[in-house]
Design a protein around this nucleic acid. Structure first.
Length: 269
DNA sequence: ATGGTTGCAAAGCAA
């Protein structure tokens, strides 16, 4: 049985409701991992998914971040945050970790919807937070594979990292201006997942250069084809062996009211 | 043209 799994940073689920509904009908995905809902459970549009045949689980604490998974092939063992997920700022405050990670098992695949923190700038405290957040997640991800080398795991989401020079539209500018997403510590953090056995299953099907998943709203970046590849589906080996196709749905970035990220889809046998 | 976009939420922050 073929299964389609997608990841999409929607940049507000309420502002994007109509486009998301149209996209669900058009894309025919079975599972979609969503980032940046910018919603709480109270104002989350549950009916948007339920009316279209999807179960949905959401994790949102305020107007920032927010992650969800919608599925029409089962949605079991929902998990919000991962163990010891770092907090930003004081460690002695009693607030929850930010709403950046949710998992569920869908058709036998452990799907994670991840919204990796933005480092803001290379020396900002948020960068250390980002790297720590990734390091803790990577340790768990490595443990899961060690415990079961046949596990079917999809680490999907907005990683806020461009792993290769070709993943940004002007690497010279990014390095000259010491921008984020392309720094060596960020790339090492991403590489650590690959070294743990996870595989970017979209890049082999859609190689670069010029293949992007995100285009800034400003400066006419999309029409000028000035984007970044920062949204990834990393698959465990057993899951990677099932991948038959992938799509970066650049069409969805077009027109009025688009998210600044395109959906990324993989098809499994 | 000293800006340029979007969303949340109600001024400024975040991306």
């Amino acid at each position: 049985m073929s299964v389609k799994i997608a990841t999409w940073n929607v940049n507000s689920i309420r502002a994007r409701a109509d486009r998301i509904e149209a996209w669900l009908l058009r894309s025919d995905v079975d599972v979609v991992a969503i980032q940046e809902t910018k919603a709480t459970d109270e104002n989350f549009p549950w009916e948007l998914f339920e009316n279209n045949g999807y179960e949905v689980a959401h994790f949102g604490l305020n107007q920032w971040n927010g992650v969800a998974i919608a599925s029409r092939v089962g949605l079991d063992d929902v998990e919000r945050t991962f163990m010891d997920q770092p907090h930003f700022g004081k460690t002695d405050d009693a607030v929850h970790a930010e709403a950046r990670a949710i998992a569920a098992t869908c058709a036998g695949v452990r799907v994670w919807s991840l919204y990796v923190p933005n480092g803001r700038s290379r020396n900002d405290p948020h960068m250390a937070y980002k790297l720590q957040w990734l390091d803790v997640l990577k340790k768990h991800a490595a443990d899961w594979l060690q415990a079961d080398p046949q596990a079917q795991i999809a680490l999907t989401g907005d990683w806020n990292i461009a792993p290769r020079d070709e993943d940004v539209w002007d690497i010279e500018k990014f390095q000259r201006e010491e921008l984020t997403h392309v720094s060596e510590p960020e790339r090492a953090a991403f590489r650590a997942f690959e070294e743990a056995g996870y595989i970017d299953v979209v890049r082999p099907i859609h190689p670069g250069p010029g293949t992007y998943t995100y285009w800034d709203y400003t400066q006419l970046r999309f029409p000028k084809k000035e984007g970044m590849r920062i949204d990834f589906i990393l698959a465990s080996p057993a899951l990677a062996s099932r991948v038959t196709d992938a799509i970066i749905d650049r069409e969805e970035r077009k027109g009025k009211g688009a998210s600044d990220h395109a959906p990324v889809i993989v098809e499994l046998d």
